[in-house]
Write a protein that binds this DNA or RNA. Structure first.
Lengths: 96, 96
DNA sequence: TGAACATATGAGCAAGTATTCATATATTGG
DNA sequence: CCAATATATGAATACTTGCTCATATGTTCA
């Protein structure tokens, strides 16, 4: 068998996490460093609620991590792979 | 602005193409070289029709290319980036 | 303490997607 | 030319997903 079912499922989940314009813009914003939910919402021009929902998914996939500071929560990319996937994908679409 | 809307949309399309287990298994099969539709269907354990539908999308995204030989059509990965994204993603899920 | 603020969450809906089934198109050998 | 074979496609359907709206939880400071 070519690729184990379980691996292909997990891989699909990973790429699914990157398969939405809003989430990519969130990730893009986080490439520069951590940012709280409100700032992210402004940055990607989305409601706080929508951003929070998306962050939940990204957190669950361990693509971002959260750091709580008072009543704010700062998010950051959790993993080097994310940034590399993002970059590689961007190369493909930009001069592909 | 963090990432241009158009870029994030195109990037999302790219990752969407990789966001499905069946398509990933097709791509995985093609890593070894070209293969016709029937062989692919066997390999990924999917109906010929389903494979054909998926190939259509992958073709449209220029992730695979088709070569017609008689009544068969052989598919191959169209781009080095695809294989690299696949590999990088796999590293992430396998020992992440 | 309580009002204001930051974030999270659940329900519900509109839009998108992967598959199946039926059928169409194209190619080959007899 | 006809039957068999390989692939493609359209419609229908079940499932998923991203957003909004309303509300909940948690935190600070006056």
């Amino acid at each position: 068998m070519t690729l184990k079912k379980k691996s292909s499922d997990r891989l699909a989940d990973l790429f699914s996490a990157l398969s939405d314009s809003s989430r990519l813009r969130i990730i893009s914003a986080l490439l520069k460093g951590e940012m709280n939910v409100g700032e992210l919402a402004e940055n990607v021009e989305l409601s706080h609620s929508a951003v929070s929902h998306q962050l939940r998914g990204l957190r669950h996939m361990r693509l971002v991590r959260a750091r709580k500071a008072g009543r704010e929560v700062f998010y950051a990319l959790d993993d080097d792979h994310v940034a590399r996937l993002f970059q590689l994908g961007l190369e493909h679409v930009e001069h592909g």
